[in-house]
């Protein structure tokens, strides 16, 4: 970040570990941009989905078994989160509760999604396997270049 001009570093007493970082005006602009940016998670990076699609290509792996295993695991995780959430105090620990709500909502949505896959598994099995989209690999080119 020092190299990018976002912060400056000073160590008045010469000790490397005791120095202080200060944000620069450029760094501050960047920080405000970061706050303004929305956050969308990449929906295509789902390890279970990948496993399931690969299983459809292999005779020795049963796709419906994968769904059964995944469902049992999601339910257990949902219970773990629910029980953990119940130990929190809504007067003081609302922030933690909101994060757990997110987890619970996503787990429940994943469970519904599994039901959906399960009811259409025969159909998807009859179709050609999806081909991954080609994407550029390696490090993105540097901003300063």
């Amino acid at each position: 970040m020092v190299d990018s001009g976002l912060v400056t570093f000073s160590n008045a007493n010469g000790q490397q570990s005791k120095g202080e970082y200060a944000i620069t005006p450029t760094g501050h602009d960047e920080l405000m941009n970061w706050f303004r940016m929305s956050n969308i998670e990449e929906p295509h990076q789902d390890p279970f989905y990948l496993k399931l699609m690969l299983s459809l290509e292999l005779d020795e792996v049963d796709a419906s078994r994968l769904i059964v295993i995944q469902r049992a695991a999601l339910y257990q995780e949902l219970h773990r989160i629910t029980e953990q959430r119940q130990t929190l105090d809504p007067q003081n620990q609302l922030a933690q509760m909101l994060l757990m709500d997110k987890s619970a909502m996503h787990l429940e949505a994943d469970l519904r999604w599994l039901d959906m896959i399960e009811s259409r598994l025969d159909e998807v099995q009859r179709q050609p396997a999806p081909k991954p989209a080609m994407r550029p690999r390696g490090r993105p080119p540097s901003q300063n270049a």
Binding site: S64, V68, A104, L111, D115
Partner: peptide, 21 residues
Amino acid sequence: SDNTLTELRRRKMGFVFQFFN
């Protein structure tokens, strides 16, 4: 079997969660 159980679950059981999704 997994398949018979899945069929029974779909025909005979309904699930209600915390969130509506």
